[in-house]
Design a protein around this nucleic acid. Structure first.
Ligand SMILES: [Mn+2]
Ligand SMILES: [Mn+2]
Ligand SMILES: [Zn+2]
Ligand SMILES: [Zn+2]
Lengths: 128, 128
DNA sequence: TTTAATATTGATAATGATTATCATTTGCCC
DNA sequence: GGGCAAATGATAATCATTATCAATATTAAA
């Protein structure tokens, strides 16, 4: 159903080369800098297709969607309200409790997103 | 700093009269039906002001922000991908674990949001 | 009270991320 | 080597939200 075209492969390569959480525009810019410009609409569609294929992961922030490598263990995110930094954490026990909640409600979980908003360590201490 | 004007009081009244999770447009429509139309920009500003004052709560969904009464215990949400229904749940243990995660990262939590996406009970069973 | 500073309102324009359109191109099956 | 379905890319459209700004309302001084 979803094909891994040349453009989509290029998008995937960009995302795989770092641990960043990319938005569509950042991906398009990175592609341009690699002398492989891809239309912004194609970037949006490519990101959606790659996520669909499970080759990348996405998180939905208030303003925009961000994508990251799928080759990491499942994790959730800490978002610094000061500098925008996105940190990651794993808490298996939380995941387990989510399943229990779902069972209690007769709800079938397909996906979830836990965001912790606040102030990161470096913004709280000496700054920078 | 934020004042509870007549308009904001009217917005608050609308939200307080049900357990719904309201978006700005729904609030504006409800106000119109109550023969108390309020400019949409004022509704947006009023909702932000009321949330700032802690008189209502908000959740950020992918497409839009929704507001609800603050006179409920803290809870998180189950969102049905089929019918859009939003259910609520409380899991103190999850909240506790979030604090532990934050401590481990030297992160100061100001807010958080946990969304479980999937299929609700009624959509899974008999439907309707 | 009058006056002045300040905040709010509401109509409307602007913003910004994302999606829709549509003509063109590409990749495949026969 | 043509036919088809999917993908591309330029661009227009969408839609929630914010910005603008003139008109009001509120409050604090004088
Ligand atoms: Mn991540
Ligand atoms: Mn709720
Ligand atoms: Zn920070
Ligand atoms: Zn449902």
């Amino acid at each position: 159903m979803q094909k891994l075209t040349t453009q989509r492969q290029a998008i995937l390569d960009v995302i795989n080369l770092s641990d960043k959480h990319w938005d569509a525009d950042e991906v398009a810019t990175a592609l341009k800098e690699r002398n492989n410009p891809i239309g912004i609409a194609t970037v949006y569609r490519g990101l959606a297709a790659l996520a669909e294929l499970g080759l990348i992961e996405s998180i939905q922030l208030a303003d925009k969607k961000r994508y990251e490598r799928a080759s990491k263990d499942h994790h959730d995110h800490l978002v610094c309200q000061v500098c925008g930094m996105i940190e990651e954490f794993c808490k298996t026990e939380i995941e387990r409790l989510q399943e229990i909640v779902a069972r209690e409600h007769g709800f079938e979980i397909q996906d979830h997103q836990l965001l912790l908003f606040g102030i990161c360590k470096s913004c709280k201490t000496g700054e920078k």
